Simulated scan of single mutants.
Amino acid sequence: MTPPARLAPLALLTALVLSACVSPAWDDHDYALKAGKTAASAASAVRFARSAVAYRDRMTGPYAEGLLTEAVQDLSSVNDQFGGVQPPSDASDGIRDEVLRLTEKAESEVEELLIQTRRDGVKDPAAAARELDGLASELNDFAEKHK
């Protein structure tokens, strides 16, 4: 695969994450929809990271590191964007807490995998892939519940 072709999935993920930018929430329903889109964007980044970990043996170290770096940056962006939207009422506080707990956990997990990749490699790629699968499922469940 040529280098530009390798970057196509990365460009697609970045476009998806950026298209999920949030704006002010006018009511609880709008806020829940934004939280759902945030979770869906985070799930996409987690699945992307999962692929980098699960198929690490099929790519160069710098390429795997680049994929995980992008996933961490995307998750950080998702957290920053949604974290900047204030819940419109006390009723939305639980939604905010839940989605940020999930997205911050995702960012932390992927960041840890990036650190491992930069050092000696992911210690247990199969376990890491399972963990990321579970996290992506939680994020997807949240997104489905709030769409």
Rank of each mutant, 00 (worst) to 15 (best):
G134R: 04
A20V: 02
A136E: 04
Q116E: 15
E111Q: 14
A40S: 14
D133Y: 04
R118S: 08
G121P: 08
Y63L: 14
L33G: 08
N140G: 12
I95V: 15
E70Y: 00
V99P: 09
A143K: 07
A25C: 06
V122K: 04
L113E: 05
H146C: 12
A128M: 06
A32K: 11
R118G: 12
T60N: 09
A129C: 08
S51C: 06
V78G: 07
P88R: 09
L114C: 02
D124Y: 05
A129Y: 05
A64W: 02
F82H: 10
A5F: 14
L7Q: 03
C21K: 06
E104C: 01
P9S: 07
D57Q: 09
R58P: 02
A45R: 00
A52M: 06
Y63V: 06
M59T: 11
D141R: 13
A20R: 04
A39V: 02
D124E: 11
S19Y: 00
A49G: 04
A128K: 03
A128R: 04
E144D: 15
D90L: 14
F142D: 03
E112C: 06
V110Y: 01
L10H: 10
E98C: 01
H146R: 15
G83W: 07
V46A: 01
S51V: 00
E109A: 02
L113R: 10
L16A: 07
G84Q: 08
S44Y: 02
A71Y: 06
Q73I: 09
D30W: 11
T117W: 12
W26H: 11
A35S: 15
C21R: 12
V46P: 01
Y63W: 12
K147M: 11
R118W: 04
Y63T: 09
V72A: 12
R50V: 00
A128L: 04
E112V: 09
L135V: 03
L68Q: 08
L75D: 00
L10S: 12
H146F: 15
L114A: 05
E112T: 13
A127R: 10
D30M: 07
A52K: 03
V85W: 04
I115G: 11
L16V: 02
P9G: 08
